Simulated scan of single mutants.
Amino acid sequence: MDISIRESGIRDVTIRRCAASDAPALELVGRASFLETYAGVLQAADILAFCETEHAAARYADWLARQDYRLWIAEAAAGRAPVGYAVVSPPDLPVPTGEGDLELKRIYTLHRLHGSGLGRRLLDAALEGARQAGARRLLLGVFGGNDRAKAFYARQGFTQAGVRRFQVGANAYDDLVLARTL
């Protein structure tokens, strides 16, 4: 997929399935996006602790080695710098799930690309990948205080299916669990 993103200063972005060698790029985007999104919202120590484990290259390498995980990376055409990614996995959410359910575990873009259409393109890739895997429903968790993300998912047809407490560092935060039939 090619996307023209002129407002951000990035001319073209391509999305492709990840390769095993993409773990460091996923780590970079994951840490940057998490910090951009939650600095000033969550405690700094919680952000740092979360990134040390959940946004470590080793975490992504493990996911990339698994057959039941699907990952896509968005890269700026000039220099192939990573600017976003999406991860689809088996569901690990505190709501009833069954055969045919998958989870959109992560969908991140760099802050300057918010509103550019890149998030929608990554979601489209994840939805198509989930359908190809035989999924009938896609679920996700979103921080209850992230109004921008909640509005994005609502526009894409996701509705609330439950709630969860999500551990980030030493603190737990309220998340909404959303679902969409495919």
Rank of each mutant, 00 (worst) to 15 (best):
R131P: 03
T159P: 03
Y38T: 02
D46L: 02
G40R: 12
A170Q: 07
A19C: 03
T37N: 09
A161L: 13
I47Y: 08
E128Q: 12
G157L: 10
R155C: 09
P90T: 07
I107C: 09
L140A: 13
P94Y: 09
E52R: 15
A39W: 15
D147T: 15
G119D: 09
E27L: 02
L127C: 12
S21E: 15
A25S: 11
P94A: 12
G169S: 03
N146D: 15
R17G: 01
Y153E: 00
E54P: 00
I107F: 07
L122T: 04
A44L: 01
H55W: 07
I3H: 02
D124W: 07
P96Q: 13
R70V: 08
G145T: 14
A61T: 06
Y108D: 09
A154V: 06
I5A: 14
A125K: 00
G9M: 06
I73Q: 10
G157I: 12
E54A: 12
I73F: 06
G30F: 14
G162Q: 09
P82G: 02
A39E: 15
L178Q: 01
G129P: 13
H55K: 01
I10F: 13
R66F: 04
D101F: 12
Q160G: 11
A49Q: 14
E52L: 08
R70D: 06
D124H: 13
Y173I: 03
A151I: 04
L64W: 06
A58C: 05
A61H: 02
F166G: 00
E103C: 03
A57R: 10
A179M: 11
G115F: 11
P94V: 07
T109I: 14
G129L: 03
G115K: 04
V168S: 03
T14E: 10
F50E: 00
V168K: 00
A58Q: 11
R136T: 11
A77Q: 14
Q156F: 03
A78I: 08
W63E: 12
R112H: 15
G117F: 04
